[in-house]
């Protein structure tokens, strides 16, 4: 599904990712762990299509180069990024934003757009599953939401859009234990043989609830070690400093 070969990324002449390699197959869950400044967010930015980076190497999604696709085209193809810092858009109702987003993607895929009633039915169901306060859906997008609510809103969007590849960028940071469980449930309910996940995190904690197939340790722009879930535990014990 996703193949990254020799990816290099610079921003303002500073090298962030160096020779980064990763392959994710359909249905797999990969976790990337690393300390601050190791290049985790750069990776999610580049995969989602954020501008401002000088990149080289190859990133293929379903055998097509992502570098040939605009951000929204990547979204249409089924790439979703749960943002580390979800953006506020004043004056835009959350429901309207979700509906606009879903229908933009459906339209691009040649699927029928949902009308208001069909959409509300869908969103209600998904919100209940995530214990997301429905009243919030009528508020301005992320405006006045707590950190946890913003993150839950990302997962709600993910479950509505049902993407092929979901990238969770430090979704666990700032979540209390209850919210963490809800987020994990949301992810687990989307785990299917065709849906893959890339979970970017500092801590092992989230991985107690979402069992990854692979764990990778990212340091200074490179994956220095890959393994199974046990690697996360080892990392938690030793700390990043002593790990190398």
């Amino acid at each position: 599904m996703l193949k990254i070969k020799n990816l290099k990324a610079d921003i303002e002449n500073k090298s962030i990712l160096k020779n980064f390699n990763l392959e994710i197959k359909p249905g797999e869950v990969h976790a990337i762990m690393g300390p601050n400044g190791s290049g985790k967010s750069t990776l999610s930015n580049i995969l989602s299509g954020k501008k401002g980076y000088d990149v080289s190497g190859e990133v293929l999604f379903e055998n097509k180069s992502l570098f040939d696709l605009e951000t929204e085209e990547r979204a249409h193809k089924g790439i979703f990024l749960a943002f580390q810092y979800p953006l506020e858009i004043p004056g835009v109702n959350t429901n309207i934003f979700l509906k606009t987003s879903l229908n933009a993607i459906r339209k691009a895929r040649g699927e029928k757009e949902l009308d208001a009633i069909e959409f509300l039915k869908l969103v209600k169901l998904k919100a209940q599953n995530l214990k997301f306060d429905e009243e919030k859906l009528n508020r301005q997008l992320n405006v006045g939401f707590s950190g946890g609510e913003k993150k839950k809103n990302e997962i709600l969007q993910m479950s509505i859009l049902n993407p092929k590849l979901s990238i969770l960028d430090e979704t666990d940071s700032g979540l209390d234990i209850d919210a963490l469980k809800i987020v994990a449930d949301g992810v687990n309910s989307l785990r299917k043989k065709d849906n893959s996940f890339l979970i970017i995190t500092h801590y092992q904690r989230l991985l107690d609830y979402i069992k990854p197939d692979y764990v990778h340790v990212l340091m200074e722009g490179k994956i220095i070690k890959s393994g199974g879930p046990e690697l996360a535990l080892e990392l938690e014990k030793k700390g990043y400093e002593n790990f190398n």
């Binding site: 989602s48 299509g49 951000t71 929204e72 979204a75 943002f83 987003s101 879903l102």
Partner: peptide, 15 residues
């Protein structure tokens, strides 16, 4: 902001 635009585009909207 560029970030707001990026966020909307990531959700499938063109610029």
């Amino acid at each position: 902001s560029e970030d707001q635009l990026h966020y909307c585009q990531q959700r499938g909207l063109n610029p």
